[in-house]
Nucleic acid binder design. Structure first.
Lengths: 235, 235
DNA sequence: CGTATGCTTGAGACGTATCAAGTTCGGTGG
DNA sequence: CCACCGAACTTGATACGTCTCAAGCATACG
């Protein structure tokens, strides 16, 4: 968590316009810029830790982040991901509860911090921002419900296929159809709630069936329609 | 869905003061009262159905409700419960998405309907109500995350014990320590994501171990500390 | 270059689902 | 009020998916 001098400015932040902050006034942007903190993280570092209190929200300027809970046996459960332009930590802030999950970087990342007072001020003064927060939260809640049903009802094979597609939607594919995020086999297992070995076996089956290609942590989606069928998605 | 003449009035609604509406002005209450609809449901009737659009929120005046999704094999997954004073349908309304889940009554119920325009009006004009909505949503999101981790990591036995405790917290115990909600074995199975037969077997084990007592759909919690241990809860 | 860490594969155990066959319960109509 | 019917519940036997454990292999790193 090294504090470098060249903190990014909100006014020049490339991810601002596709984020929840896209509709705030330039006056408010200036205010945030003055009050916000900014931190540089190496890959794998923890941004905040489950159980702690938050005093603001974190805005990801650069990098990819996993949000995860620790189960009763100490096993990590990945709840969701966040990337450039996303905010994290707002759930605990708004519910005034301790953090229900931890956040850690998946690559080198730059994360800004906006204190609670400022966030509440914007919520109160900017109906559009306010409504966006309501929208984000209720959208997340819908996603969570879908995950619950899948975990409860789908076999591991389907869950893995679905997770690969979800990762594709979140982080997109590069020109070679590789999912643009590098996760360990264990992290993949911690998304779908299974053992690392099961992920390994199923990935190589998917490869054998020409649904994907694997090169280390690079996963290439070569037959998305078939993968979708494998995932048994209703929508 | 019979429209009886004696619709309850918000001003005399016993559940209003423990609900999200506890802080709205009497002026606003009057306005809601005029515009709201009200329906009487028999046990087992569907209030709204997954995939449809909502045009308002539902406020439960009386009765218990299950909110559930249908999985890809047509199996019901219960996401959460609602009771007197709770609102439902707000997730889809605020995210402007189709309903992600269905709602059905668990007993005879009275449910009021407040149209979207009115809800949005209150959100905009009443910061306290607004903030309560943010709080409800973010709290729900935290609960959902916990459920995800449990489903992904805990064995069925622990999940069942935990669900019984959750039902206790939601619906409370009567003077005989019975959980004040009657669910079929299948519904219990649909909370924790297992087969009906597994629920039956585990319930009778819990009974044998003197953790609970069973009389039909009545479940009596006779040893809550032991049940908590069985649930392997970290908090 | 050695050592740690992640990845892979196989064999076996275990939890849970499924299927099949009763049994009980709750409601309905004679 | 009782007999009947279907639905819900229960129990047992069996099958299957997935986890666990163990061992070997690849890879990155100091």
């Amino acid at each position: 968590m090294k504090n470098k001098p060249e903190s990014p400015h909100c006014s020049t932040c490339g991810s601002r316009h596709k984020s929840v902050f896209c509709s705030i006034e330039s006056e408010e942007v200036k205010e945030i810029d003055n009050i916000k903190g900014c931190n540089f993280f190496d890959r794998g570092q923890v941004i905040f830790h489950e159980g702690n209190r938050v005093n603001g929200i974190y805005c990801i300027n650069k990098g990819k982040v996993k949000i995860y809970q620790t189960g009763s046996e100490g096993k990590e459960q990945i709840i969701r991901f966040a990337k450039e332009g996303d905010i994290i930590g707002y759930r605990a802030l708004l519910s005034e509860e301790p953090l229900s999950a931890s956040a850690a970087t998946l690559d080198d990342a730059v994360v800004c911090f906006i204190p609670k007072s400022q966030v509440l001020k914007i919520i109160q003064n900017n109906p559009s921002f306010n409504f966006k927060m309501l929208k984000i939260l209720s959208h997340e809640l819908g996603e969570a419900a879908r995950i619950i049903t899948d975990l409860a009802q789908k076999p591991v094979r389907e869950r893995l296929a679905e997770s690969l597609l979800l990762l594709k939607d979140t982080f997109e594919l590069d020109e070679d159809k590789n999912i643009q995020v590098k996760l360990s086999r264990e992290e993949l297992a911690n998304i779908i709630g299974t053992a690392t070995e099961s992920v390994i076996r199923l990935l190589s089956e998917f490869k054998k069936d020409k649904l994907i290609d694997i090169d280390g942590r690079n996963i290439k989606l070569i037959n998305i329609p078939a993968l979708t069928r494998e995932a048994n998605i209703i929508d």
